[in-house]
Design a protein around this nucleic acid. Structure first.
Lengths: 241, 241
DNA sequence: GGGAGAAGTAGACGCTGTCCACATCGTGAT
DNA sequence: ATCACGATGTGGACAGCGTCTACTTCTCCC
């Protein structure tokens, strides 16, 4: 489910032009993505990246002010991967004529996609989260020239739940923080905390339970009187890649 | 509220005995705690610590196999700080003759103490969490020869809620993971995520909201019919230190 | 055709973790 | 009381890291 990395066509018609190398900047970011994928941010060495690309260490300084700038650029790539995974999981939702069911399912898919991405790509996950500067509080990232902000997707899903009557308007404020906190916390516990040692099926069950609990937490009750919002999906949880 | 660091009396009657330095191991851990407190784990340099203690760099290798072992030892100290902060917050709870109210308040205090510790000591917080080996999945840490396991406190609080009728037994399974996930996720967002740039009052309000949402999530309904569990505490949220 | 400037190279500096050999000290066995 | 031994700390060295200051090479545009 994670998309191809480093498939920037041509490499000669890019914005950076091609002098000696032909888009060294993107090559370094790609190398950084494959290195941080397994080893996390600590494994990102400026010298190792330039070595992998076949260039002198100082060449990196023509494209990045310092190692930190390079880390941020790689982190942006990781954030795009996360955004893509969430968007794909939402797009794969089965059609439903009930708006309340659809909106709730959308919220559930955002949470599960977030968690599964963290489990499948713990290196990218921590990189995408912890490397946020002050201006990135909106969480806006673009992919293929299309704005795909995970946090905005969450806000939209909650608003749609209100519109569809699946969430009481009085409970809407702050709901995004409760949702993100639950899902992010479990993702961190599953990716870097004690649950990383547990078998996948156990974590699958816990993830589903946590997401349902988060939904219950914002809705205020496990299910509205006389209506099922599909609390248990028969569809098996699919993890990226 | 964070307890004194490095106040090991005597320094000559300790278990390690005093050869040249007089408990170099603990001195390095203390120096590591003060360094990671502001700069996080990345700021922990083996050479800098030995320099601060006034000893040769290689002296550290008589007490720690490598830098990673030293980091783990310092992380254990950070975990003790966290455990102490939670225990203190629980102990400060006002007495109540209603067991359901008391148990719920206990759960709320665990969550708020966890979040406030992360905000007050982000360096120690990430250190305490991310440095857990396979055997530490129980989360057991001891302080003053007394077992104070944060995770065990959470389990106890939930069990007490069941006993007091504040939590339906059917909803008890997995509840600890939903609680920990919510609280840990918000703590991470507040300490290292976008909320670190927000004013304290805003984060205070969000924290309270998230904790209430987590409680609602596990209980299944915001309040039992005809009983108030003190959802809004008039007592101001106090942060450690 | 030639100058300007971008892209990459070479070498050095101080920092880090870690290894090896050596010095020092306290203590228990003799 | 002595002495050897093991625990503790030192000194020197090595490779790797990020980053700085020069210097070279290449491309584009006038």
């Amino acid at each position: 489910m994670t998309q191809e990395v480093g498939s920037h066509a041509g490499a000669a018609e890019t914005a950076d032009r091609a002098y000696h190398h032909g888009d060294l900047r993107q090559a370094l970011i790609d190398a950084g993505l494959s290195v941080t994928r397994v080893g996390g941010v600590d494994a990102l060495s400026l010298r190792e990246l330039t070595r992998a690309v076949g260039v002198s260490p100082n060449a990196a300084y023509r494209h990045f002010a310092d190692r930190d700038a390079l880390v941020h650029a790689v982190a942006n790539g990781a954030q795009q991967q996360l955004a893509g995974a969430i968007a794909a999981r939402i797009a794969a939702a089965p059609a439903s004529d009930d708006a309340a069911v659809a909106a709730t399912e959308r919220l559930r898919r955002i949470g599960l996609a977030y968690i599964d991405f963290a489990r499948a790509e713990p290196g990218w996950f921590s990189l995408a989260f912890q490397t946020q500067d002050e201006t990135a509080s909106e969480g806006i990232v673009t992919i293929d020239d299309e704005v795909v902000a995970p946090f905005q997707l969450l806000l939209d899903a909650l608003d749609q739940m209100v519109d569809a009557g699946a969430l009481e308007p009085a409970r809407r404020p702050y709901a995004e923080w409760a949702c993100w906190a639950s899902v992010h916390g479990f993702a961190d516990i599953a990716a870097h905390g004690p649950l990383q040692w547990q078998p996948a099926q156990v974590v699958d069950a816990l993830a589903a339970s946590v997401v349902e609990s988060a939904i219950t937490g914002v809705r205020g009750t496990p299910a509205p009187p006389g209506a099922s919002l599909g609390e248990t999906t028969t569809e098996p949880v699919q993890r990226p890649e």
